[in-house]
Nucleic acid binder design. Structure first.
Length: 189
DNA sequence: ATAGGGATTAGCT
DNA sequence: GCTAATCCCTATC
């Protein structure tokens, strides 16, 4: 099993090719690292709040947040308890229970769109606010490390506003050439 | 007490 | 490409 007590920037590329599973299974092809209090792009940059508390909690748990009034997104918490950090699951390929995933994602025209984007991925898995803070060992959700190393590339993070979105933080990782990676979009300056 | 904004998506041009 | 949808958290008064 992956060591999640380390720097999210180290953990992130190792999550590529891993499988995240609820009643739907998804192979992860794109992630972003957020380094908590030392990262201007992170929700934890301004310290502990009720919203981001899960990121300060123990590694191997979930940080789920609500965004734009309608979407859930899921992070895997990294670093030891007390040190905020996480890896945002940005995109993946549904590899089991397509039927249920399609039911949850009626807007998806093709299987490719089932989990191509952070909120889409969360929706396909059935993740909502009740998953915030729960453990990967809770039984509701499970992470299966990839058997073999996967090729990865990195670049600037998507949609991050302010200084955290600059090329100084190339903490988005994806599997090059994979069709399930989401389109790149610069953040607002 | 209230205003402003966000690690996005879908649908239309 | 552009923009509406829509709500929780945070900051500020």
């Amino acid at each position: 099993m992956l060591d999640l007590t380390r720097d999210p920037c180290e953990v992130a590329p190792e999550l590529l090719g891993a499988v995240i599973r609820t009643d739907v299974a998804i192979r992860i092809v794109e992630v972003e690292a957020y380094r908590g209090e030392v990262d201007p792009g992170s929700h934890a940059f301004r310290g502990l709040t009720k919203r981001n508390a899960a990121m300060f909690g123990p590694p191997g748990h979930l940080y789920v947040y609500y965004i734009y009034g309608m979407h859930w997104s899921a992070n895997i918490v990294c670093w030891p308890e007390g040190q905020a950090g996480g890896v945002l699951l940005r995109a993946g390929e549904v590899i089991d229970n397509h039927e249920l995933a399609r039911e949850r994602r009626p807007a998806a025209k093709t299987d490719r769109d089932l989990a191509r984007g952070p909120a889409r991925l969360a929706q396909a898995l059935g993740i909502d606010g009740s998953f915030n803070g729960i453990s990967l060992a809770s039984g509701r959700i499970e992470l299966l490390a990839s058997g073999e190393p996967v090729e990865s590339t990195s670049g600037p993070r998507v949609g991050v506003s302010g200084a955290g979105g600059t090329a100084s933080y190339p903490w988005r990782f994806w599997i090059p050439g994979d069709r399930h990676v989401s389109p790149y979009r610069p953040g607002r300056s």
